[in-house]
Design a binder for these strands. Structure first.
Lengths: 248, 248
DNA sequence: AGAATGCCTTGAATCCGTTCGACGCGCCGC
DNA sequence: GCGGCGCGTCGAACGGATTCAAGGCATTCT
């Protein structure tokens, strides 16, 4: 039914919603509280698609008719200002829901940063599922509250912290996001460009670049390869992000 | 049962949830989709209280055991940084819900800006109501999505707009909030201090003061009395907030 | 009434982040 | 191999917002 659910020739689990078996959404996302029966139903109503980097999942103002879960990959959510500047309102990682809103149209663009796999569901179908599985609606609300709290946190970062403190906070949020998805790692995927990070933090890309260079020179981080960071001195980054200038 | 529901000696409606009859929550808030029976139940489980200006409804970190609806008055929600600076993450107006979260503790302070009246409900009671009235849970989700969208909007304002554009956007958001509560007015309540506004917009109180003075000198606004603004030239304010520097 | 306090306004100097310009590097297509 | 392009880095100059400081105006307290 779909090209992704059987990478191993000997997949013995295909009787129980095989599509969902290794989806991040079961760990941290929408589908976490569902039993096998519900997963079966969801997987039969949803469609998996795969899209290349830089493609738009949807645009601000499009009728909000579909809901997505990011199975694999990275995405950014952006709002455009009339003068052309953009604000990144959030990044999304494997397992995260993208595009759920009660509004008639999406309030932001969603663009993939990497080649990705998505689980797509019609809004009407999701609403039906929400009605049939109260746990799902509750989960939806939980995720919304989580996201709201994260956005308020971001508001604090953008509103009150210095440039370097913002970049440090961003790196720490990457750690947090990675922890949500699996065991803690010191080397993290960071597929966003300096410009993306700048648009997230309310800075220019030059300032982001300078901050990261400064961290590198202080030995706090390393960038072994493009789009990957190693956080060496987490306490220092935390202290900087918190505004606690006295080093510990 | 409570001192507020019968200001007129001749109240003939007291048989049908009299407490809720004139509450803003029925117009724009949580209780909007409820019928008389549900309102009766809610009003019997909730308690009305009245609190003076500058009192704290709850503090960041307090166990999130209660949910409030602001019946009358104004409140600000703030997060504190380790270095003492504060970020106002939002203002709340009559009819708005305050303090609903699925987290174990409140993620921000809630402080009243004016003498206010509040409707208080135990979190457990609300959860019970949510189970009995699916419409209510749906409404909760709607409100959360609305708030998330507003917070993202605020992120754009703080992240990408100039000081004067932020202040203009703030004034326009006051108009929006007042429109939610009733017929459009040109003279608006603005009970927050310059410092509050600054902490909301990621500016200093001096910059806010200078911006408002500039607007006044251009004839765009008037401040007939303390804590009240009249918006005279809405198009100019909108243009400035949008970053459209070419005046129309 | 007079003093004290909180909030707002205004000015001058400073500073942090931006702007503008240039260059290096890796990747891709030709 | 070469040129073009996207992305990242770096330096110098600029500018908008902050910081620091002073003073005004209400309201409250004594």
């Amino acid at each position: 039914m779909n090209p992704f659910d059987a990478p191993h020739p000997t997949n013995e689990l295909k009787a129980t919603a095989p599509v969902c078996d290794r989806c991040g959404s079961r760990v941290a996302g929408l589908c976490q509280p569902l039993d096998i029966a519900a997963l079966d139903e969801i997987s039969s109503e949803s469609q998996q698609t795969s899209m290349p980097a830089h493609s738009m999942v949807f645009r601000e103002g499009d009728p909000a008719g579909k809901v997505f879960t990011l199975i694999e990959g990275f995405a950014k959510l952006t709002r455009l200002l009339p003068d052309g500047k953009q604000q990144v309102v959030g990044f999304r990682f494997a397992g995260d829901v993208i595009g759920y809103t009660t509004l008639p149209s999406y309030p932001f663009d969603a663009e993939l940063l990497t080649d990705s796999r998505l689980c797509r569901l019609e809004r009407g179908q999701l609403d039906g599922l929400l009605r049939r599985y109260p746990k799902l609606e509750r989960r939806m609300l939980d995720l919304c509250v989580q996201e709201l709290t994260a956005t308020q946190e971001q508001l604090v970062t953008v509103g009150r912290r210095s440039a370097e403190a913002r970049v440090a906070a961003f790196l720490l949020s990457l750690v947090e996001a990675s922890r949500r998805r699996g065991p803690p790692r010191t080397v993290l995927e960071m597929p966003m460009t300096r410009a993306d990070i700048a648009d997230f933090l309310g800075l220019t890309l030059e300032t982001v670049s300078r901050s990261l260079t400064a961290f590198r020179k202080r030995g706090w981080i390393r960038e072994p390869v493009h789009h990957r960071v190693e956080l060496i001195n987490l306490p220092a980054l935390s202290a900087l992000a918190e505004g606690t200038s006295d080093n510990g």
